[in-house]
């Protein structure tokens, strides 16, 4: 086990967050079991008030979750200094079998939290609590995910052994190496660039033309393309964006981008990418709620438009950032292509 101030901070933040989420989970259970929208009894009024409390807990929990995601990365960087073979967060994550699952559970919990908050945003604008039971059924799944997150983190740091040698990012994302990371790093950069820069106009076109007509299939298509473009973007970051940032064709680590050496550019890239991805999911997911009445329809319609517009801007910005990096590199090197 490795303990340093960052690890202790991780535990404290996660324990606090888990306690809050468990309380919200208990409230959810009460609401799912006893909610009766037609009732005017005191018990129902208490449930309504608790539903507000649970929503506030999740709102604050979301920000703690985002901070804990950043804190997790910083902690991984700090422990990489004592794990033999690890040079960055990738090496720390590789150090035992709980590393990457822990990161993925954390990201999944944050994404689900954003979706829950969107559902809450719609529900809090309705005068009849129409979506409250659904909202709290969803929360029943979110809270356990945070507990799993805590458990994974706990076992991850417990199992960290400074005697066991890990791999550095150069090995994990080695061209023609073994494993998923290496397979992605081995993707041919120029075809990937063509796929990436070919897909973005298509996505923006669907968003600007098709989805703006506010048809259900327009929204579903846009959200589906958002998922595909998100996955494509992750591949693009590993295959060609990160080598341009490092100015080295063999370095593909998606984590070192967040280091000071590279101007913390990774934070900006991931913020734009996840923001664009989550907001492009919303139009399609919110479309599923429209069947729940005219009032829901009206609230959802406004939110869909807003999410669509902001996601389009974020996708645009996300593409501009690596493009500028590539252009600046090409200008500085006199069009000496990195991968040639």
């Amino acid at each position: 086990m490795i303990l340093n101030p960052w690890v202790i901070a991780m535990y404290v933040s996660l324990l606090g967050m888990t306690a809050l989420y468990l309380y919200a989970w208990i409230i959810s259970l009460q609401i799912v079991k006893r909610w009766d929208a037609a009732s005017m009894e005191q018990g129902q009024l208490m449930l309504e008030r608790r539903s507000h409390l649970a929503a506030i807990i999740i709102q604050y929990g979301f920000w703690i979750q985002v901070m804990s995601l950043v804190l997790f990365y910083v902690t991984l960087e700090s422990v990489s200094e004592v794990i033999p073979g690890a040079m960055c967060a990738t090496g720390s994550l590789q150090a035992n079998s709980f590393g990457f699952p822990s990161l993925f559970v954390k990201i999944a919990a944050t994404i689900l939290c954003v979706l829950w908050l969107s559902l809450h945003h719609v529900d809090s604008r309705l005068e009849d609590y129409r979506l409250t039971p659904l909202k709290f059924r969803v929360l029943l799944f979110l809270a356990p995910l945070v507990v799993v997150d805590l458990a994974f983190q706990f076992f991850y740091f417990m199992e960290l052994d400074p005697e066991i040698i890990s791999s550095c990012c150069g090995v994990v994302f080695e061209i023609e190496g073994k494993g998923l990371g290496a397979s992605v790093a081995s993707l041919p950069p120029y075809p990937m660039m063509i796929a990436f820069y070919g897909a973005i106009p298509f996505l923006l076109l669907v968003g600007l033309v098709f989805a703006r007509e506010a048809t259900p299939w327009g929204y579903y298509t846009y959200s589906g393309l958002g998922v595909l473009f998100f996955l494509l973007s992750i591949l693009a970051i590993i295959s060609f964006i990160s080598p341009y940032v490092y100015e080295a064709p063999t370095l593909h680590c998606p984590f070192c981008l967040m280091r000071q050496d590279y101007g913390y550019i990774g934070y900006l890239l991931y913020l734009l990418l996840f923001g664009a991805f989550l907001l492009s999911l919303l139009p399609g997911l919110l479309e599923l709620l429209k069947g729940k009445g005219l009032a829901v329809h009206q609230v959802v319609r406004g939110l869909q438009r807003k999410a669509l517009n902001i996601s389009l801007v974020l996708w645009g910005l996300f593409v501009i950032v690596p493009t500028l990096i590539i252009v600046v590199y090409e200008m500085r090197s006199g069009a000496g292509h990195l991968f040639d």
Binding site: M40, E48, R49, H52, S124, E127, D128, Y129
Partner: peptide
């Protein structure tokens, strides 16, 4: 108005 949520 008798069944409005407290916010409303």
């Amino acid at each position: 108005i008798s069944r409005l949520p407290e916010k409303f």
